[in-house]
Amino acid sequence: MAFRGPKVWLWRWRRNPLKRRADAVEAWLVLGAWALTVVAGVLAGLGVSQAVEHSLARERVEWHSVVAHLTEKAPGTPAAPSGRASGERVWAKVRWSAPDGSEHTGQARVDPGSSSGTPVTVWTDPEGRLVTKPATAAQARLRSALTGALIGVGAAAMPFVGGRVLRGRLERRRMEQWDAEWARFGPLWGRTTG
């Protein structure tokens, strides 16, 4: 196991007579990659998070619940009269009126065995199309935070990986230069004077 001395902060920028130009380039590359990683991740994450939250807030404002009625008997058997619903719902055809008065039909989830004409609450967009129930404010915050975090990590990964690849190439180049110098000066060390 190799001995490593105490960690020296900012060693890449300290004066050193053995420091080469490639070492300085690598130091600035590492700093730039880390800065770009942090900035890209934070900006992308915040931007996407705000966009998702705004979109979900707009849905809460624009989407409305309307009462629709079953046009036919729903498949399945009705729930037991014990008052406890099983939680299972089935798809059935429903009809509702849009805000402009036009009639629409579509498929909605209803209790099994519901009879024709049973009222069902559905959600529609401004054009009267069926949509899912909009997310609550708390759900929207959670969804936007998770989406922003995921996109932020993804955006931060690109400059981070790019910096690692570039640093690896610099490392290989530096090792090739060392090999060339060693091949040139190594044989001279074996000679004795006298």
Rank of each mutant, 00 (worst) to 15 (best):
W91G: 13
E103A: 11
A157M: 13
L18F: 14
R12S: 08
A149G: 09
R173D: 09
R4D: 12
E88V: 13
L18Q: 13
P134L: 11
L10M: 07
A74M: 01
R169P: 00
A137I: 12
A27Q: 04
E53R: 12
L36S: 13
V110T: 06
Q139L: 02
L188K: 14
W96M: 08
L43T: 15
A98W: 04
A156P: 12
W28S: 02
K19Y: 00
R89M: 13
W34L: 15
L36A: 14
R58I: 06
V30I: 12
S114Q: 13
S82R: 09
G128M: 13
V122Y: 10
A24V: 11
G162C: 07
P134N: 07
R15Y: 11
S116W: 04
E176G: 00
T192M: 11
L166F: 06
T124G: 00
T105W: 06
V42E: 01
S102K: 11
L146C: 03
A140K: 04
P75S: 09
V66C: 07
S49F: 02
H54T: 14
K73Y: 09
M158F: 09
G152K: 04
W34C: 15
A135C: 01
G83N: 10
P112R: 01
V48P: 00
E72L: 09
G76M: 01
E59A: 15
A85M: 03
L43H: 02
G186I: 02
S55W: 00
V131I: 07
G87Y: 00
A92R: 03
T132D: 15
R172L: 10
L10Y: 07
R143Q: 10
G32A: 15
M158G: 05
A40W: 03
A156Y: 06
V153E: 06
E88T: 14
P126Q: 13
K93N: 07
D179H: 08
F3S: 15
A85W: 00
T105Y: 05
A2Q: 14
R95W: 05
T71F: 12
G76P: 04
E59C: 08
D125N: 12
P187W: 07
V161A: 10
R14F: 05
V94P: 00
G32Y: 11
R84K: 08
T124Y: 02
T193R: 14
K19W: 02
S82N: 15
V131D: 09
R143A: 08
W91K: 13
G148K: 00
M175K: 12
G87Q: 06
G32V: 10
D23T: 03
L36Y: 03
W178V: 15
R21M: 02
W182N: 08
R15N: 10
V61Q: 07
A51L: 12
W63V: 12
W96E: 10
D179Q: 14
V25P: 00
A157R: 11
A137D: 14
H104E: 12
L18I: 04
T37G: 03
L170M: 11
W13Q: 01
T118F: 02
L43I: 14
S102W: 08
A92Q: 02
G45A: 05
E127T: 02
H104V: 03
A68T: 07
P81W: 05
Q177K: 04
T192I: 04
E53G: 01
A44I: 03
R141N: 06
V110K: 01
S97E: 15
